[in-house]
């Protein structure tokens, strides 16, 4: 009886799909007659290609075109051709290591801040993700629960993450309340440049660690347990097992994690923007926020300069993405 009910339910559930397929059959047969069987893959790709083209490729070219123009007009037809003037302006520096000596010092301050952020964020993100993955890969109590707990922040929107931490870190926030309860003074986290950068890095690690932990955990679980048992029978110490077996076999995953974290690090914007607003001053203003501010929040909206900075950023990301693809390909080919 139950089986019959189940069968009926399955048939009913399949009805819309069947209806859809039948409805599509006639137009698709017509299209196939028009383009031939070999042309059909392009037909199926077309919706996605159109979407990608309209919202990614065309804006990419428009952005590049904007970077070669000057003035404050929004419409391309109203803009003045400026050649590489915007790029020259961005790269007009006496000493690239010292942002103050650059004409557009905010751009270089953004790059400097992003570099500092990436250095610490990527280093500690990878380190914490690795340690967490190693622990979660061990036979510990409530392993499934902890795996879920570490992944949970990844599911949150970056704005939500930033708001939660903002409430914790504000002058009258949870953390300061805790410090006061211990008899300590309140710390104005968002007034000190060092603290602001620290929390920007910390919150970013907290929010993204679960994702990278998951990649590393998958890598750890792909290492056959036999290898560890063989090492155990051979009398291999735990340190030697880690450095001679685990780490080399995990290295391809680790490389992917490092490159992905670098890419995400360069793109950092939303979390920190909500958390610190780029402050105090420009202490936590990163390159993407510089682009956003230059184009949209200043009194003189300098679209050309912002577009040129975007092209520079895009080039860096392109190189990083190529690296990531190369690393992934190398890993997949063993």
């Amino acid at each position: 009886m139950t089986a019959t009910l189940k069968e009926r339910a399955a048939t009913l559930a399949a009805l819309p799909v069947e209806f859809l397929f039948r409805a599509l059959e006639t137009p698709l047969a017509f299209v196939q007659r028009l383009v031939g069987v070999r042309g059909m893959p392009w037909v199926f790709l077309l919706p996605n290609l159109a979407f990608f083209g309209i919202f990614v490729v065309i804006p990419l070219f428009i952005n590049f075109a904007f970077s070669l123009t000057g003035g404050t007009a929004l419409y391309p037809s109203d803009r003045v051709y400026a050649g590489t003037e915007q790029y020259a302006f961005l790269f007009d520096c006496e000493n690239f290591a010292d942002p103050i000596t650059c004409r557009e010092d905010r751009f270089w301050k953004g790059i400097y801040n992003t570099a500092v952020f990436i250095f610490f964020q990527v280093s500690f993100l990878v380190l914490f993700s690795l340690v967490t993955a190693l622990v979660l890969n061990m036979k510990i109590r409530a392993r499934g629960f902890f795996r879920a707990v570490f992944f949970f922040p990844v599911l949150l929107s970056p704005v939500v993450v930033a708001l939660i931490w903002k409430w914790i870190l504000l002058r009258d926030g949870l953390l300061n309340a805790f410090l006061v309860s211990l008899g300590l003074d309140k710390i104005l986290f968002f007034v000190s440049p060092e603290w602001a950068m620290f929390w920007a890095i910390f919150v970013s690690i907290w929010a993204h660690m679960g994702f990278y932990t998951l990649i590393l955990l998958a890598g750890l679980q792909a290492i056959p347990p036999d290898l560890y048992e063989a090492a155990e029978v051979d009398g291999t110490s735990r340190e030697r097992v880690f450095f001679r077996i685990t780490l080399p076999l995990l290295w391809p995953n680790l490389l992917v994690v490092i490159v992905l974290a670098l890419i995400k690090g360069v793109q950092i914007f939303d979390e920190v923007f909500v958390l610190t607003g780029g402050g105090p001053g420009t202490a936590t203003q990163f390159i993407v926020q510089y682009i956003y501010n230059t184009a949209f929040t200043q009194q003189v909206q300098n679209f050309g300069l912002a577009a040129a900075a975007s092209v520079v950023l895009g080039t860096v990301l392109f190189v990083l993405t190529l690296t990531q693809l190369a690393v992934t390909r190398k890993r997949d080919n063993g």
């Binding site: 056959p224 036999d226 290898l227 048992e229 063989a230 001679r244 077996i245 076999l249 063993g334």
Partner: peptide
């Protein structure tokens, strides 16, 4: 071992 357990 059945899988040989060689370090790849």
């Amino acid at each position: 071992f059945q899988s040989y357990a060689l370090y790849p």
